[in-house]
Design a protein around this nucleic acid. Structure first.
Length: 573
DNA sequence: GCCGTTTTCGGCCCGACTGTTTTCAGTCG
């Protein structure tokens, strides 16, 4: 039983309880618990089996939820959830995804019109039965008809590079306007979350008309969904939705803090305000009617007794405690990256030569790279067998000898095969400067086999790192199920590094596991997995992920000089 | 359902916008 499955059960239960009209704070308790579980690095199944471990010591998990977790681990299901599913069919909660329909309205649709699926909802709306229901009207019915197909297709999140491009383009266009002062992209984009559901852009202005008219007419905007004095919501042609908020300058910091989130972080910050006899909202920090602060984020944090906290850390996963103790980490910066240890050339499935990749890397200020083309198992990508690889390496050596300003290491991205052997023999791997072992195939194997494969790779004396450890593709497919605890222990023991693959569709390790790896003393490498010269540009997303994990430059091996990095390689193995 | 150096009971973050009402509940972020 994976933590994510347990978290999903609590989320599902929260949805159903809400429709069932349960106490909203009880619903929130389940959601909080789901969130705590999602953020855990240890397996709940293991913790539950361990008698010395008290689950109720976890934040947001008390006696009752601890017992429920144990029951889930033991029986594979949650009784309360099964009972509610009998009462409320699965299709009912699907309706929550339609904008404008919340738990109360969905409950009415279910109880009074017996609607229990998106199909029945579409039918009822088409027949005009929604508009006749008390509390509903013509507008709601139209919204349902307009949104239902989009919702039925799902997939409403976007990779961070797409989200940032949209947000920053629109923000910079708004910044050109005379009536607009400061402009800031907020929300999950600013927190550098790996995917974004919608965008938040914040501006200061005395008159919102020009900005809102400009946004409405912007070529990336498809439709205005709502517009008021201070807030406008639009749908972009990409399908993403964006909120524009207009605030006065003295509120800009408070609004940035408020709209950057996360919700969980803000709840704690606002509670701290209440404890100090203050009220915090997007307009500022107030004592009664009196304005205390709000022009900058620093002011807001200071008034609740904290230093400014970098947005990437604002998830209520320990950052507030660190801030309070004055122990916030100095987060890694893109400019601190000196090497890139995962990339491809025309030898396998890249589009640029060794020399072109080296030149592009040097142009971006890198001091060393490792060329890591695919091994032979990846036939689709023209992977290299031992003979071709040795010739490739000879070429790399020759090019390295005549190239100035950057050092090129002989590397290989070696597949860990389904039968838990490596795709190339040890005598070949032994000749490499850098071996990154990866799973590409058989990701759906049972966890035991995945763990066996990773063990073989980590224990191999010539493997330096495990690349994109889970093999996930964000928004497309889940990664392999594996025991991270085993992986950390083996890596720490054998001096093997773990990669944060910087590609926006991977970002694997994720922030939670990268943080845990660091805590086990495992050096992290951030690599682009570039398949072209422009592929180096994704490095920033890997750095974002590392920042979210709370990593500093010292935690990331390829921030070191080549000399220091080589020394680390020698002493680690 | 969780939580506690004000509390083991009574709190639990806060405001904007919409649609359906005719003063506000529901939804959303």
């Amino acid at each position: 039983m994976q933590n994510s499955e347990i978290a999903r059960m609590f989320e599902e239960l929260a949805d159903l309880l809400e429709i069932d009209g349960a106490n909203p704070f009880r619903v929130r308790a389940y959601r909080n618990a789901a969130r705590t579980i999602t953020g855990l690095t240890d397996s709940l199944a293991d913790l539950a089996a361990d008698d010395s471990c008290d689950l109720s010591s976890l934040p947001g998990i008390g006696k009752d939820l601890a017992a429920k977790i144990v029951a889930i681990v033991e029986t594979g299901q949650l009784e309360q959830l099964e009972d509610l599913k009998q009462k409320i069919p699965a299709g009912v909660s699907d309706m929550l995804r339609i904008p404008g329909l919340g738990p109360k309205k969905v409950a009415v649709l279910f109880h009074e019109l017996s609607i229990d699926s998106l199909d029945k909802l579409r039918e009822a709306a088409t027949q005009g039965r929604i508009a006749e229901t008390k509390g509903f009207g013509k507008k709601t019915q139209e919204t349902i008809l307009a949104e239902i197909d989009r919702v039925a297709e799902a997939g409403t999140r976007f990779h961070i590079n797409i989200a940032m491009d949209e947000a920053e383009q629109i923000a910079s266009d708004l910044a050109q306007l005379k009536s607009v002062g400061q402009v800031q992209v907020a929300g999950s984009c600013r927190r550098r979350q790996e995917t974004a559901g919608d965008l938040d852009v914040l501006i200061t202005s005395d008159d919102s008309t020009e900005a809102m008219d400009t946004l409405a007419a912007h070529q990336r905007v498809e439709k205005v969904l709502a517009r008021g004095e201070t807030k406008q919501r639009v749908r972009l042609r990409s399908g993403m939705e964006m909120d524009l908020r207009v605030v006065p300058a003295e509120s800009f910091g408070a609004a940035m803090q408020y709209f950057t989130g996360s919700k969980e972080h803000n709840i704690v910050i606002r509670r701290r305000a209440v404890e100090r006899g203050l009220k915090l909202n997007e307009y500022g920090l107030f004592r009664g009617e009196e304005y205390i602060a709000g022009a900058t984020e620093e002011d807001v944090y200071r008034e609740v007794g904290l230093p400014w906290i970098p947005p990437e850390l604002r998830e209520n996963r320990g950052e507030i405690e660190l801030a309070e103790a004055g122990e916030l980490p100095q987060l890694i910066e893109l400019s601190e990256m000196r090497g890139d240890l995962h990339m491809h050339t025309t030898a396998s499935d890249g589009t640029a030569s060794i020399e072109e990749m080296a030149a592009a890397a040097r142009d971006r200020g890198l001091e060393y790279i490792a060329i890591t083309d695919h091994s032979k198992r990846v036939t689709m990508a023209n992977g290299l067998d031992a003979d071709r690889l040795r010739k490739h390496w000879a070429e790399i050596e020759a090019i390295n000898a005549r190239t100035e300003g950057i050092e090129i290491l002989k590397g290989i991205e070696c597949d860990i095969l389904e039968d838990a052997t490596l795709d190339l023999p040890d005598d070949v791997l032994a000749e490499a400067d850098w071996v990154v072992a990866v799973l590409h195939y058989g990701l759906k194997q049972p966890q035991e086999q995945i763990d066996r494969r990773l063990r073989v790779a980590v224990e191999n004396p010539y493997v330096h790192a495990i690349g994109h450890p889970t093999g996930r593709m964000l928004l497309r497919r889940e990664g392999a199920h594996l025991s991270f605890e085993q992986l950390y222990e083996l890596c720490a023991q054998h001096g093997v590094m773990l990669e944060i693959n910087a590609h926006p569709s991977r970002l694997d390790l994720d922030d939670i596991h990268a943080r845990a790896a660091r805590e086990h003393g495992i050096p992290i490498v951030i690599n682009t997995d570039a398949h072209s010269t422009s592929g180096f540009d994704v490095m920033q997303y890997g750095v974002f992920q590392a920042r979210r994990a709370g990593l500093s430059a010292k935690d990331v091996a390829n921030t070191r000089t080549l000399k220091q990095f080589r020394k680390l390689l020698r002493t680690a193995k």
